[in-house]
């Protein structure tokens, strides 16, 4: 493992620094702790996500999922521990990370009066080599809504646009937080189909839906009260817990149930 500081090579001609990203886990989280005013949000969390993997973070509300994602995205600073995304420190190498990380935040809001095409154009303009607008809209099946304002889209369409914007800069790592919460079953299927299209990206998927995690993820970390209780493939988790389904495995491993509202 190469430390982030060693990856910066200041060019002798004084031009923009170049970062060399070594072959390594796409995301590396080591013994990370985070408290808010004395309340533990994340405690001693460690996991690795390999390049190209779809990795799930599954847990009930308040299990520390979103805090973990915010730490990885560099929106918060860990109290202790070490995080690397493609070898970059999310706080120190912020500018470099922003170029290779695409984030779809839980309930992120966009300029409500702008159209789908205008928002795609805006987010594409932030990156040096963006995906073509038509390809982005195709991927999330919004080509027919290019001239629709964000505020006039349905919840599912807004969510799909949000995914498209997260992918605008050809990120190497994509974070999708609560991808389908609040969507009807048909809209969820279309969103999932969009995620299944992703082949080259490493995906970190935050969810409290068993079905979603089972369908999309190669491996899953089960979160409970700020800690990781198990990391494995969905199938292995079921076997390990001696359960019949992932829902049963979750109950067996965390000692708690996901309430129906949370799973909705």
């Amino acid at each position: 493992m190469v430390d982030g500081a060693d990856l910066w090579h200041r060019r002798p001609d004084g031009r923009a620094p170049t970062i060399v990203v070594m072959r390594q886990p796409a995301i590396h989280v080591e013994h990370v702790h985070k408290r808010y005013r004395g309340v533990v949000a994340v405690e001693d969390v460690s996991f690795q996500v390999e390049a190209g993997e779809v990795f799930g973070i599954l847990g009930a509300n308040g299990a520390g999922k979103t805090t973990t994602v915010e730490l990885i995205a560099g929106l918060r600073r860990p109290d202790r521990g070490r995080i690397r995304v493609l070898g970059l420190d999310p706080r120190r190498d912020r500018a470099a990370l922003r170029q290779v990380l695409g984030v779809q935040l839980q309930q992120s809001h966009l300029h409500h009066a702008l159209t789908v095409a205008e928002l795609v154009g805006l987010y594409r303009s932030f990156y040096p080599d963006p995906r073509p607008a038509a390809a982005l809209l195709d991927l999330v099946e919004l080509s027919g809504h290019a001239r629709t304002r964000f505020e006039k889209l349905s919840g599912g369409q807004q969510q799909r646009l949000s995914i498209a914007l997260a992918l605008a800069g050809r990120p190497r790592v994509v974070i999708l937080d609560e991808l389908t919460t609040g969507l009807d079953p048909r809209a969820r299927l279309r969103v999932w189909a969009g995620v299944e299209e992703l082949r080259d990206e490493t995906v970190l998927l935050v969810s409290h839906s068993m079905e979603e995690v089972e369908r999309l993820c190669d491996r899953v970390a089960l979160f409970d009260r700020g800690r990781i209780v198990a990391v494995d493939t969905p199938a292995e988790l079921v076997v390990r817990a001696g359960a019949a389904t992932l829902v049963e495995a979750f109950v067996a491993l965390t000692g708690r149930e996901l309430t129906p509202e949370e799973d909705a």
Partner: peptide, 12 residues
């Protein structure tokens, strides 16, 4: 191994 140059969003 890949190289990544930090480029801030430009005038566009």
């Amino acid at each position: 191994m890949t190289e990544l140059t930090v480029r801030r969003p430009g005038p566009r």
